[in-house]
Each structure stands twice: as C-alpha cells, then as structure tokens.
Design a protein around this nucleic acid. Sequence first.
DNA 1: TCGTGACGTTAGTATCCGCTAACGTAAGAA
DNA 2: TTCTTACGTTAGCGGATACTAACGTCACGA
Lengths: 109, 109
Amino acid sequence: MDAQIKALAEPRRRQILELVRDQELAAGEIAAHFEVTRPAISQHLTVLKDALLITERRDGARRLYRVDPTGLLGLKQFVDAFWGSGLARLKAEVEADAQTAEGRKRKGP
Amino acid sequence: MDAQIKALAEPRRRQILELVRDQELAAGEIAAHFEVTRPAISQHLTVLKDALLITERRDGARRLYRVDPTGLLGLKQFVDAFWGSGLARLKAEVEADAQTAEGRKRKGP
DNA sequence: TCGTGACGTTAGTATCCGCTAACGTAAGAA
DNA sequence: TTCTTACGTTAGCGGATACTAACGTCACGA
C-alpha cells in the first residue's frame, strides 16, 4: 500500500487518474492535458503502473492507459478502518457527553 | 485533501496514526515507540495536526494527541469514488465478456 | 529500406523533505 | 528563583523526486 499512497501524493498523478477513470487514453492524449513535457507524464504513468493503479495496453505504436480499481483496495481498507473506528469513538463521546450533561445540568454548549 | 494524502504518504506518520487511533498519547510516549529522535516525531505531529488528521490537547506541560477522523473525509470520498466507478466498470466488462464468450464459444480462459 | 509518429529511457538539475543537533519555551517542584 | 521535565523550533545536511533536454526503441507506411 505504500507505493499506492506515495503515487497518489502527487497532485498531477491524481489528475491523470481522473482522466483515465472513465475512459481509456493514450499517453500522448494524457500529456496534451497538461503543460509539462511528455516525458514527465510518461514517468508519472510508470509510477502509477508500478503502484498497480492503472493498466497498460498496447495498440500498435500507441499505449492505452486506464484505471485499475483493485490497486485501491489496500488504501480503501486503511481509510475505512480509521473512519469506522473514529466514528465509533466520536459516537461514544457524544453519548457520554449527553449523559453527563443530563446528570449535571450544567456547563452548556 | 492534498495535505492529508501527503501526510499519509510517510510510513512513520501512518504508524503514529495507528498509535493514537484508539488511545490518547503524549508526544514523549509516541516518540518512545520509535528509534528516531523526539524532534523528528514532533515535526511529524505538526504535519499531522496541520492536515487535520490529529487533534492536540494541552495537559500542563504535556500535549496529548489523538486521531481526528473527520480529516479523513476528503480522502475517503476520493477513494470511494474511484472504487465505486472502477467496480462498476469491471462488472460491466465481466458481463460483456460473459456474453461474447457465450455467443462465440471460443477463446477460453 | 527509409522516414515518421508515438513512446519510453537516461543524464542532469532544482527542489522538497525527513532527519539530527542545538537552542528556545512553558509549566510545575524544590 | 532555580532546577527539571516535556515540548516545540531552527539550521543544516543528505537522500528522494519532479522536471527538462537529449537520445533510443518500436510499429507502420511509402
């Protein structure tokens, strides 16, 4: 999961992911959306591919890229774990606060 | 969400988050779990705090830290969006493959 | 075979970032 | 006040990385 999070830490790579989220695009088409050089985009695509976040498919001299959702599984589990436990703790706190507030009838919001 | 993902991109910061996920710990207690110096941990805590991933509470000369789950909301939405759309696309592909396979009865697994 | 289009790859550079060492700050205890 | 504890902050260094420029590779058409 380390490679995936580090890949997503770069804003441009997240933009690339959004581009190939619903459509399959060639490397040149992706690069055309940005103002950096094409090799820079190529390196970003390599990072995303190594992190299993996109898949590459050859079509003649072109290479088509698309999102690979399975690569996000580890990150999703990580986030969901914190999200679930965090919400549970928040809920417990709110209930505890409500109880103490009812018992004391003091220290308003 | 950029600050949150960049904060999570560092493995040590994820370990810190796991530490203060279910318990409230002081900066020194957190630093005791690692082999790096205390100032390094202090800087990590600052990054996590700026990214709204943890909360700081003063208790005398000590400072207690704990996970703030609400800071993960943006990242969770981002991941869920890709996860949902990606799974939908995968499902559509599988169904399309099943149809073509049934029609052609060729090109096995 | 020669040329062209579409990519990837490799130096080389500037910047960012995590770490340590040294210093500064705030809150009790003596 | 003075000492100690528990922190945060700054300066500086070394490694990682995003970028550009130049070069190499593969597929296809003339």
